[in-house]
Design a binder for these strands. Structure first.
Length: 782
DNA sequence: ACCGGGCCTACACTT
DNA sequence: TAGGCCCGGT
């Protein structure tokens, strides 16, 4: 389903006019009211005759306006939980029901595969039958599909492969090596970021002006970018950014191709418009400029991808680019209780430069619990609190699958995982370690890529000595030299060298065997299909044997994964289709019915909703993230705040926010100041409390031996000054600390104050160095 | 060719 | 703490 290429005959006929593969051209005529039936209703009575269809009756007036304004540019500003997806899918179905277009004449773009799948299902539900041949997918998937048909315009063939992040980095490092760049001084990651930003803005190397060249590696970023692109072309590959960059470049420079798509797409629908970057925006504008039937749905308050090049300004530009555009605001929230909405609204109100939307509670039963803000001693206690609250809620009424822990950064999930394992609570980490990123899967994929395209040098390099064939750096270098001199793929060079006496006997015969194998497996693929071919290949090349011999604990699991991989291939008609799928799909998209608690980042949570949401780690430096504080001033701080807004608005019934006073970073503990966002929540929407151990500590005046088992207690003295945990009303300070005051902190010991900023102190601790702490957590030392 | 020890850096977010 | 990378020994 995910992929395009073999999607449907209907889709093909639209586009194939000048397709390199020589498929017949043909643009279907616009369906008239008397269009042949069977197309839409499967022979049933024409839906157009029945006013008002019940799918419209279920909408409120704002939503209905957004659905029924079919022609001309339309911008839908949709707050969180206001039925954005419903509007989009209903609109899609409405266009089809009104017979304004065939299914394949609507272009619908989403950011995630999950959103695409959901839209596809819901459109089918309204239509009453599956919609075939849709141009519905992520920007990247749609671009890949388009690029396959016009690849020759950018120097690729239609069998180009899509590189993953790992391969991108390896290739870039090779390019940098060749250019003699010192990668100690100029890390490849930095250059990759620069290149990606250029691609986000639709800049091919030729379009990067010398003034825009970054000072990276003495103004060499641009020329390195050029070399990198040229290597990609040599290898007949495209990286992620290229999918959009190349496609947009073709639309920009090939009027005949653009005209084809103008004829093909009468209506364009865009989801999550606030997250589009410049190149995506250009792509959309080019495709929409003919009919101008473009509908963009977005929420400036949920724009959280500026680091990926997203431009909220695209929303503001919409009216300029499409004069006379209608704007519809969706403001009735049907998802969350009043206190949750109030908390979210109060927080986001601190941002400036918003388009201005207010969320209204759309439900009658929307009264509910206040948002809970819990203060805890350290991150371990925070994990315990969340675990206990999950168990309690489960006993109460909530299903595990209706609970989620949403964190700022990926590594934070670990503490909660460990806790949930102890408690025996089933959970899943969404977007955590990805199946397709595991070593054994990537190895197997590399074998498949070579099977599909022998010129895939990166894949060949990966597996040439896996399993061990006695090929080391020396042999590899010889191959590279031959390949470069004769301008042939690495695998071909290796094949040639294996016919000579260039290598020692062992690697020579191993290589010969490998190439004979590839020939044989290709024949198998032609005769018996790609599933058999891959299974045979993995066995005969010695790869599965390698893991069978491996005595490590993970080996059996890896073999299981390989079986699963072969099974997954079977779901695709061709190996090429599968390879595209893997390149474009992420684990995030996977759905599972099991009753499990979800753990994920706030970014991954966008678009999802849960009855009960935990938002831990609201501490300065973590959330808002330190890098946001360091670099971008108010702009990136506001993005952090939007992220907080996204988090709160995920919850339907209950939201629990927490922060810990001490957190382990790398090896050691450091003090953490509660996030400023906590102070920004409106008081009447929240309920603040310390944990129970906090209460105990407040009363205790001596170290508690029993607080948490002997070891923990010994390591972490748990006594703190009375009142220290009252986050809500700050107790008056007995005696203000001044620079030079010698202080004692329960966790960091003795130190001297070096700076005072209201209630925040910089203290140079004798044992752990300089830290910033709240004055409530230290006491004056004698 | 391959293994293992020591050093360094990193823990943003993702199609 | 942990994973990646460089280097030296076998």
């Amino acid at each position: 389903m995910p992929l395009p290429d073999h999607a449907s005959a209907a889709a093909r006929t639209v586009i194939a006019a000048a397709a390199p593969d020589g498929r017949p051209s043909g643009i279907p005529a616009a369906p008239a009211a008397s269009a042949p039936d069977g197309r839409f209703g499967g022979g049933q009575a024409p839906a157009v005759a029945a006013p008002p269809p019940d799918y419209l009756a279920r909408l409120n007036s704002e939503q209905r306006e957004a659905v029924e304004t079919v022609d001309g540019p339309l911008l839908v500003l949709a707050g969180a939980g206001t039925g954005k997806t419903r509007v989009l899918t209903t609109r899609f179905a409405h266009i089809l029901m009104m017979r304004r277009a065939f299914p394949n004449q609507v272009l619908a773009v989403t950011f995630t595969n999950k959103a695409a799948r959901e839209m596809r299902e819901r459109v089918a539900a309204i239509l009453g039958h599956p919609a075939e041949g849709l141009w519905l997918g992520t920007f990247h998937a749609l671009c890949a599909r388009m690029l396959r048909r016009h690849a020759e315009y950018v120097g690729l063939t239609n069998s180009f492969t899509i590189l993953d992040t790992d391969d991108q980095m390896r290739l870039l490092k090779q390019v940098m090596d060749a250019a003699g760049v010192d990668q100690k001084r100029w890390p490849a990651q930095g250059l990759m970021a620069i290149i990606q930003r250029w691609k986000d803005r639709g800049l091919t190397p030729a379009r990067v002006t010398p003034q825009e060249d970054s000072d990276y590696a003495n103004n060499r970023a641009r020329s390195l970018y050029e070399a990198y692109q040229s290597r990609l072309k040599d290898l007949n590959t495209a990286d992620f950014g290229d999918l959009l960059l190349h496609t947009t470049e073709i639309l920009r420079t090939q009027p005949n191709v653009l005209a084809q798509y103008h004829r093909a797409f009468r209506y364009i629908l865009v989801d999550e418009y606030q997250d589009t970057n410049t190149v995506q925006y250009l792509w959309l504008r080019l495709l929409a400029q003919e009919h101008k039937n473009i509908c963009c749905v977005g929420d400036d308050d949920q724009s959280i991808y500026s680091w990926r090049g997203a431009e909220v300004e695209n929303i503001l530009r919409f009216e300029k680019d499409f004069p006379g555009a209608r704007i519809v605001r969706l403001e009735s929230n049907y998802r969350s209780t009043k206190p949750i909405l109030a908390a979210a609204a109060g927080l986001i109100a601190k941002n400036e430069g918003r388009l201005g939307k207010t969320l209204r509670a759309g439900r009658n039963d929307a009264d509910g619990e206040r948002v809970k803000v819990v203060s805890l001693w350290d991150s371990e206690e925070e994990a315990r609190m969340v675990g206990d609250a999950i168990e309690a809620a489960h006993r109460e009424k909530f299903r595990l699958s209706e609970m989620a822990i949403l964190v700022r950064a990926g590594f934070q999930t670990r503490a909660f995982e460990e806790r949930l394992i102890v408690l025996g609570v089933p959970y899943k980490v969404v977007g955590g370690l990805k199946f397709y990123e595991r070593a054994e899967i990537r190895d197997a994929m590399a074998y498949m890529r070579i099977l599909h395209q022998p010129s895939d040098d990166l894949a060949f390099e990966r597996i040439v000595n896996t399993p061990r064939r006695g090929i080391g750096d020396g042999a590899l270098q010889q191959m590279h030299i031959v390949a470069r001199d004769q301008s042939i793929p690495l695998a071909v060079a290796a094949d040639k060298l294996a016919q000579t006496d260039a290598f020692r006997p062992k690697p020579r015969s191993a290589l010969r065997e490998l190439f004979e194998g590839f020939n044989r497996w290709r024949a198998t693929m032609a005769k018996e299909g790609h599933v058999v071919a891959v299974a045979t290949m993995l066995d005969e090349c010695g790869y599965t044997e390698m893991w069978k011999q491996d005595k490590s604990a993970e080996a059996p699991g890896r073999l299981e994964n390989l079986k699963e991989l072969v099974r997954a291939i079977g779901e695709f008609e061709t190996l090429a289709g599968f390879l595209d799928h893997v390149a474009l799909v992420t684990e995030n998209d996977e759905k599972s019915e099991a009753d499990r608690v979800s753990l994920m980042t706030l970014h991954a949570a966008k678009g999802l909703e849960f009855d009960l949401v935990f938002l831990p780690g609201w501490e300065e430096g973590l959330f808002p993230h330190q890098r946001a504080l360091d670099e971008g001033g108010t702009k990136s701080l506001e993005e952090e705040r939007r992220l907080a807004y996204v988090g709160i608005t995920r919850g339907r019934k209950r939201v629990v926010i927490s922060h810990a006073a001490n957190r382990r970073i790398y090896a050691n503990w450091s003090a953490a100041i509660p996030s400023r966002f906590l102070d920004e929540l409106p008081e009447d929407a929240v309920e603040r409390e310390g944990s129970s151990s906090m209460q105990r500590q407040r009363m205790a005046s001596a170290p508690s031996v029993f607080s948490n088992g002997p070891l923990t207690a010994a390591r972490k003295p748990r006594v703190i000054e009375a009142g220290a945990w009252e986050v809500q009303e700050r107790p008056a300070r007995k005696d203000a600390m001044t620079v030079g005051t010698r202080v004692f902190h329960q966790k960091f010991g003795y130190g001297r104050v070096t700076r005072v900023d209201d209630d925040r102190l910089d203290v140079d601790f004798e044992k752990t160095g300089s830290k910033r702490v709240l004055d409530r957590f230290v006491e004056r030392a004698q």
